[in-house]
Design a protein around this nucleic acid. Structure first.
Lengths: 222, 222
DNA sequence: CGTGGAGTTGAACGATGTCAATCTTAGTGG
DNA sequence: CCACTAAGATTGACATCGTTCAACTCCACG
């Protein structure tokens, strides 16, 4: 279910490219629970995350939320269609982001074919990866899904304060369930199970430590 | 698991754009089982399907194949990374395709920012849809997955010869299983079940008729 | 102190995977 | 032209895993 636009070692844009973009950007701040944009709203800007975590989701009729991805610093978010956002984005922690007005961005891209080509390449790569990831997840066990989810968080864990391998989970169990396609109960049970196995240690529901480093290698089998 | 680059009503490129591209293209033919390109091979060209059906897949260690998508006429295929194809493409039927040499294509895009911008827009749209589709599938029942798969084929069914609502399945049950993330047995059982319910009629394993038109509406619930 | 939301745990059920047997069909060679 | 073969497809029995429904715990907040 990994669906962000970056992939750990591959930020969407290079440092120089982001600097170019910074010329047309402004800084925005959002509190916990703040909405960056809402599905269906007219799109006027896209964002590049500076700090914090964002949940991107879509509603499927009858209050059924699908969490498409979690976004971390350096991610680009706000993909749109026909001038409207296709997803909703909500801040899970206090968030700082660059805001890029669409009109200026389009002008910039139109006059910088190389920058645009890079966008194209990166986009196709990242989304292809996301698709692959989604398919992979669709055929693995609940345990493996949780491990992949933890691995995702681990890769983006930018707070190495305190013990290494400590991961903060700013989202709720429901968010994790809506992201992995499991039920809350299954998510909870598997956290407990991983703890019993000695793979992780739950400090509290929103903070855990990874004890068994090799869970990364173990992820593939399913 | 819908993952093609087009979406029925949204061909990747407009007629004019394809005409532009045709200037640098040549025609290629492939027999049933023919390989258009293989995962990891150096990429020299991309293809635009003219006729036939193509299976695009990736191997996950130990002979485990994931079918990422099926491609139909007007689809663009051959996405690559670092000069290499990331997937393999095999013809399920006799295939005719335009071949676009990458060097010429890149030159064309570099000098046509508008064409490139269109590429960018279309790509982000289609892949976003594919991602959504994959996630949707990951949380629905086997029956709903099969229905979505049939719906996909129906949208691309370009052979209205004979009775309407007749669909040809050029792929094997294993391919369908590898595409939907189910087992062959579950795929088979659900075909049988849909027939018992009167939703479809299996003429033979590679050809069926859709009897209940409203299965389309029924797909969402899961 | 309650109260309510989030999280965890238990028991029973149901759907899908697994293993194995059988059926069908297309292709092959006599 | 027919019989044999092998691959694909279907079906059944059973095991497994995740969901469902329900109860209970744990905090944060009033």
């Amino acid at each position: 279910m990994r669906a962000g636009l970056n992939q750990g070692t591959h930020p969407l844009l290079s440092v120089e490219e982001r600097q170019k973009l910074a010329f047309i950007a402004s800084i925005r701040h959002f509190p916990v629970g703040g909405v960056l944009f809402r599905e269906g709203d007219e799109a006027t800007e896209i964002f590049i995350l500076v700090s914090g975590t964002v949940k991107v989701s879509r509603m499927l009729g009858e209050g059924n939320e699908v969490v498409l991805s979690f976004f971390f610093p350096n991610d680009l978010l706000g993909l749109l269609e026909n001038g409207r956002y296709v997803n909703s984005a909500k801040a899970l922690t206090p968030v700082t982001a660059y805001s890029l007005p669409l009109t200026a961005l389009e002008r910039l891209l139109r006059t910088n074919p190389d920058l645009q080509l890079h966008f194209l390449t990166k986009l196709s790569h990242e989304l292809r990866e996301a698709q692959q990831h989604a398919i992979t997840l669709s055929r693995s066990s609940a345990r493996a899904k949780i491990l992949m989810f933890l691995n995702l968080l681990k890769m983006h864990n930018e707070t190495p304060e305190g013990p290494k391998n400590r991961i903060s989970l700013p989202m709720t169990r429901v968010d994790i369930a809506d992201y992995t396609g499991l039920t809350v109960e299954t998510v909870s049970r598997n956290f407990t199970r991983l703890q019993r196995e000695g793979t992780i240690h739950l400090i509290n529901p929103h903070c855990l430590e990874i004890l068994d480093e090799q869970l990364l290698r173990e992820i593939l089998p399913g």
